[in-house]
Amino acid sequence: MRHLLSISDLSRDFALEILSTAHELSRVSENGTKKLPTLRGKTVVNLFAEDSTRTRISFEAAAKRLSADVINFSAKGSSVSKGESLKDTAQTLQALGADAVILRHPASGAAHRLAQGRWISGSVINAGDGTHEHPSQALLDAFTIQRHLCDSKGDLAGLHIAIVGDILHSRVARSNILLLKKLGATVTLVAPPTLIPFAWQSWGVEVSHDLDAVLPTVDAVIMLRIQKERMSDLYFPSSREYSALFGINAERASLMKSHALVMHPGPMNRGLEITAEVADSSASVVVEQVANGVSVRMAILYLFIAGNQED
């Protein structure tokens, strides 16, 4: 495979191969090796048309640890219509000799457009497109769950994962649902009815509006960020009410099994979907998710751009 656009393109075995490669790469880092020569001479472009801290830095760190040259390209503020602007940008990147483009874009499907436009010869890695998908985040979440709760080569069969919050706008949720189910886990979505998209019935998941009832049964809970920039309508009456019904606090966290994990893709709205007390507790793996993100993205770069790829 040349492009990583959606979790739905990955077979179960290939998804597991990405995770086991990430596992090996994290051990290489633990052995004291900070830099590997694997992608020497390859150029990786971070094309971020939308704000991001950890995804961009994480891909940059991953590419640099594999000795690739990294160019950070911020396309923010372009006034050209989306299709055209993306094409023009793509042709610029092609001229720069990019071997891979890491694309973050506010429009759903932007990564597909870039990959299928045949404007560039390199790989396209989707780093979040609108409200569609964020595959590398789902892979690092699965990797974090696997590290804590499973044998490192196995899938997630038998685990129950809850995804809580703004499912409607969340690309993290979409990618996670696809991947967790592919790897055998059971998924329950918890949110106010206004933040659950109509299509959930076709996803093979459970839906609940009662967080307290779901928490005692889960092995991990993924708290989603309330995306203030996408909250154009009144999805819930007030932040306080959302927090009281769907936020996780110490009292709620105590309902969970002793081994259960609290996860958050970041950036966190402390006091809204998660209290500071829970975010800094021993059940929280938020910081570890960031560290795991680098290993997973190294695995993605290695598997998608190191070799001589078939289409």
């Binding site: 490669t21 590997l36 694997t38 070799g307 001589n308 078939e310």
Partner: peptide
């Protein structure tokens, strides 16, 4: 494991990594 240090990486499909 020497996979990440091979000199033929770019002319072959990626190989799975082994335990170090």
């Amino acid at each position: 494991d020497i996979t990440l240090h091979r000199d033929d990486l770019r002319i072959r499909p990626p190989r799975p990594l082994m335990d170090t």
